[in-house]
């Protein structure tokens, strides 16, 4: 039930921001519409600060939240491949579902393409390749990697995001 409600709120937030529209997402990569960046980084900063302060106040235990596993080389390569597909499709997996749900046929095409790609990758035995399991780092975080306190990285991400929001607004006024 939690999964369903969280999903509904997730889909609602994406659609209301306009992220069911592939042209709007593609605009990110031609500097004509920076909605993707703004929504994404506002969300990251909000959730990051929320978790940080709730953990500080003892409301949540940071150890009880599962951190995605790191595999450096597969995620670097996978990310580059993913990005190439992203700019061709104009949608990512989550936004393609929202796009299809709002009646856009290209969203449905991305959903079908994704499923095909995932199925073929599985069938081709991607998981059996040495590359797939290369450079595992467990649930390593940036504070652990850099040997600095958690709060310092939180502060740095906020500062970076605010700087980039300012730049993003300048690009909008320039165009």
């Amino acid at each position: 039930m939690t999964a369903l409600l969280i999903g509904i709120a997730f889909g609602f937030a994406l659609e209301s921001a306009g992220l069911g529209d592939s042209r709007k997402l593609a605009g990110q990569f031609y500097f004509t519409d920076l909605t993707v960046f703004k929504v994404m980084f506002t969300a990251i900063v909000t959730a990051m600060l929320g978790v940080f302060w709730l953990a500080r106040l003892g409301v949540v235990d940071l150890a009880s939240i599962s951190v995605p596993e790191t595999y450096l080389v597969p995620q670097l390569l996978g990310g580059l491949i993913f990005g190439a597909g992203f700019v061709a499709a104009g949608l990512c997996p989550g936004t393609s579902c929202v796009s299809a749900a709002s009646g856009r046929a290209d969203g449905l095409a991305v959903v079908l393409g994704l499923f095909t790609g995932v199925l073929l990758s599985g069938a081709a035995g991607l998981g059996g390749l040495a590359l797939y399991n290369a450079t595992p780092r467990g649930s390593e975080t940036l504070p652990q990697l850099l040997h600095v306190p958690y709060g310092v990285v939180v502060f740095a991400v906020v500062a970076m995001a605010l700087t980039m929001f300012k730049l993003a607004e300048r690009i909008r006024t320039a165009s």
Binding site: G78, F82, L91, S121
Partner: peptide, 18 residues
């Protein structure tokens, strides 16, 4: 859209996420 989706599928499987 379809081809981009398929390429993203490969990338997401390799990276273990999206």
């Amino acid at each position: 859209a379809f081809a981009g989706g398929a390429v993203m599928g490969l990338g997401a499987v390799l990276a273990r996420g999206c």
